[in-house]
Write a protein that binds this DNA or RNA. Structure first.
Lengths: 196, 196
DNA sequence: ACACAAAACTAACGGTTATTAGTTTTTTGG
DNA sequence: CCAAAAAACTAATAACCGTTAGTTTTGTGT
């Protein structure tokens, strides 16, 4: 009879969710079975249900935990007195850090949110939309104060969020460049471009 | 007894593949059933097999058709005599155009390639890797000729490809900005940055 | 109009799915 | 050390999956 290993300060539910994030990232949510998840946890599938309510609940937990962390950081950044470019830089760095430190979870939230059931799907999309709008507000502020070029704020948000999200492809090249160098170069490109 | 509607110059296989792209984009490959696909085509599930070999063959067809189109364009761009920034701009425009004109197919190739079976999965990844390396070569050339800042070429490739890919989120905002304006602003941001 | 091919149908196959019920083992607290 | 709670197990369920076989209908070329 196997036992679920729990990390320090973590419940068994957390352990299952973490393994779920890894599995869902590798295979996709719909293509992952509870039996596979149970295997990776080291237990029979039915035993999982002593700790979680359903398969979809795991996905829900992953998606909203990630979404809430981004929202929290944005809350803090908005309150700090800093110019628009500084705020943007702060958020870009946070996105990169989240991507590198919570890879599985962020990846799953980015890719598998479509498999959420209503009303969670709608909630998730609303939250993301609101996040994007607040980001656009920061850029608008920078434009009106003259520190940012007059570009459509939503286009800028799109590019920045997509670029940091693209770090999911970075794993492979990790060796060739240090993490700090990566962050600096991304920030530099996204803010200042690449042409001389 | 229903009949599959075929577009002009298209086989029934093409019609099924196209509906498949739409379905796989909306629900994901693994979460889409052949019965659902048959419904959207207007036929019974078993009838599909008169035209296609398997479910996975549809995905394969979508992914490699898209990949080959991008590779073809890169072949052409490489042969034109143009500086690195001009080549990059050309490719960025092509990516944006593909994303807007073949949304379902490009989206599926971007998101569902993980569900490909071997050896197709490895082939697909090799092709993508090769594409990225050739893009990095263009940037390296621009750096050595002085037209592009000295940034890690792979970081630049990452940002550009991710940004154009991010257009999958654009659909929603389509109303507020014209397509040509969108392209110009994206090219401008990716090449020249946003700071004044 | 008739023969042949193409493409639809119905029915069924073995396999997998998430989840539940009921039981047994393990852990915990007094 | 014993009782109660937690967490594991086995077994089974009904639903759904991709795909095949066999049959019938539809379209086509002469």
């Amino acid at each position: 009879m196997a036992k679920i290993k729990v990390a320090k300060n973590g419940t068994k539910r957390d352990a299952i969710t973490q393994k779920g994030a890894g599995l869902f990232r590798k295979k996709g949510f719909a293509a992952s079975s509870m039996r596979e998840l149970a295997d990776s946890v080291g237990v029979e599938a039915s035993s999982l249900y002593n700790h979680i309510g359903s398969k979809s609940e795991i996905l829900r937990s992953i998606c909203f935990t990630v979404a809430n962390r981004f929202t929290s950081q944005l809350n803090e950044v908005e309150q700090v007195s800093q110019d628009a470019v500084g705020k943007l830089e702060n958020l870009i760095r946070f996105h990169i850090q989240m991507m590198l430190e919570n890879f599985d979870e962020v990846y799953v939230a980015n890719h598998e949110w479509k498999q959420l059931e209503e009303p969670y799907l709608s909630n998730f999309l609303s939250q993301r939309k609101a996040y994007e709008n607040r980001l656009a507000d920061i850029i608008r502020d920078g434009i009106s104060k003259g520190s940012i070029k007059d570009i459509n704020p939503h286009v800028v948000v799109l590019i920045i969020l997509s670029a940091v999200r693209g770090l999911e492809f970075w794993q492979r090249n990790k060796k060739n460049i240090s993490e700090s160098e990566l962050v600096e170069q991304m920030v530099s490109h996204l803010l200042n471009g690449i042409t001389k």
